[in-house]
């Protein structure tokens, strides 16, 4: 996409291949990402609005946009918005992700 001013997410009207009709059932972790957005965007919390989610996805960069799966893009964006608003720090996130990975390795040992 070399149009000046056209974001890589802005693909309407561009040439592309045939529509691939395969579908997958959403996995639990994907549904949870969706659930987190529903909760975080409600009137009570109002922490991640839908337009903020989309802006975050559009700021991932063209490579990530094409390579990540749909809900991978979502959780990356949601996490970025929450970090930006100071809901948790990148230190807290990094430590917790390391713990999650360690628990998984423990489960698989």
């Amino acid at each position: 996409m070399s149009d000046p001013g056209r974001g890589y997410h802005d693909m309407g009207g561009l040439p592309a291949g045939p529509v691939e009709r395969g579908e997958h059932d959403y996995a639990l972790w994907e549904k949870r990402v969706d659930a987190l957005l529903v909760l975080l965007s409600d009137k009570e919390r109002d922490l991640v609005r839908v337009d903020e989610l989309r802006r975050g996805i559009e700021q991932l960069g063209a490579k990530a946009y094409d390579e990540l799966s749909y809900y991978e893009r979502w959780i990356a964006s949601i996490t970025g918005v929450l970090l930006g608003k100071g809901v948790f720090t990148s230190d807290e996130l990094g430590r917790r992700m390391a713990e999650v990975e360690a628990r998984r390795r423990g489960d698989e040992a």
Partner: peptide, 14 residues
């Protein structure tokens, strides 16, 4: 994946 770990971590922190 890395992002599944991110989902778990974010959910737990929230």
């Amino acid at each position: 994946s890395y992002y599944q770990a991110m989902e778990t971590a974010v959910r737990e922190l929230l």
